[in-house]
């Protein structure tokens, strides 16, 4: 016998209206600068949203980790400009090896960083003459503007681009960085040693003024696929055995 659906009445419309009202209210409040009462702990801010609004007129610059911060060490850089006139430079990406027993932090020179993703146009101004010479050997006059124009064009950031500590990352004209949550780029240092502790530090310059450096400590830990699969499947089987009655 074919039966026909006749569902139990649910307060669907009421719920829907309530959700729309709440959403609109929150959106408006957020738009007007409303502060929600939920305060994240200091640790969560350190770990997940290390954001500093340095001065009222300066952009927000953030260095944060991806969802799984310590696996593969990708860093997401987030940035907000308060006006289109703000200029932002990110330079001095410096990597240190830390946690050396009885020794101070060791600066790792010329550490290449590997860009994984970028959401806006940006360019790297390469300040190291030697490397510019490698790229443009025919250029004998290293006029800054010429070099920058060429170097920037050459190194316009795309997925997979590399840059080095000491390079400056400039955001080009027309970039739109006013959104609250722009993920600008995701990068990670190359060739880290498993199990070692590191610190990454960078000093942004905003409107040609230095702002306090932002640092992040991390430890390089590699995925162990065999362990993950063993534990994962054991967890699935164990849970189903325990909950199947």
């Amino acid at each position: 016998m074919k039966t026909k659906s006749n569902c139990r009445k649910m307060p669907g419309l009421f719920f829907l209206l309530l959700m729309i009202t709440v959403s609109l209210c929150f959106s408006s409040c957020s738009f007007l600068g409303f502060r929600t009462s939920i305060r994240l702990s200091e640790t969560s801010i350190d770990l997940a949203s290390n954001v500093y609004l340095v001065e009222r007129h300066l952009p927000i610059v953030e260095l944060k980790c991806e969802c799984q911060p310590l696996w593969g060490v990708p860093f997401t850089l987030m940035l907000q400009r308060n006006s289109e006139d703000d200029s932002v430079e990110l330079s001095e990406f410096v990597l240190y090896e830390t946690g050396r027993r009885g020794l101070s932090d060791k600066r790792i020179a010329d550490q290449p960083f590997f860009l994984l993703d970028v959401n806006t146009k940006a360019a790297i101004e390469m300040r190291q003459k030697e490397r510019l010479q490698q790229i443009y050997p025919q250029n004998t006059e290293y006029d800054h503007k010429t070099i920058c124009a060429k170097a920037c064009a050459y190194k316009e950031i795309d997925d997979g681009a590399e840059f080095y500590g000491g390079d400056t990352l400039k955001f080009m004209e027309g970039d739109h960085l006013v959104a609250e949550r722009d993920v600008i780029l995701v990068f990670k240092p190359k060739a880290l040693k498993n199990g070692r502790k590191y610190k990454i530090e960078f000093t942004p310059r905003v409107n040609n003024k230095a702002v306090p450096p932002v640092a992040y400590h991390f430890r390089q830990v590699k995925n162990n696929n065999a362990i993950a699969w063993t534990v994962g499947l054991a967890a699935i089987i164990g849970f189903l055995v325990l909950t199947t009655r």
Partner: peptide, 22 residues
């Protein structure tokens, strides 16, 4: 995802994601 403006212990203003979503 709702965000909040808050102050850290060093009194800098922080821009933090909240856990709330719709």
């Amino acid at each position: 995802n709702f965000f909040a403006l808050d102050r850290s212990s060093q009194s800098s203003i922080q821009f933090s994601p909240t856990p709330i979503f719709a």
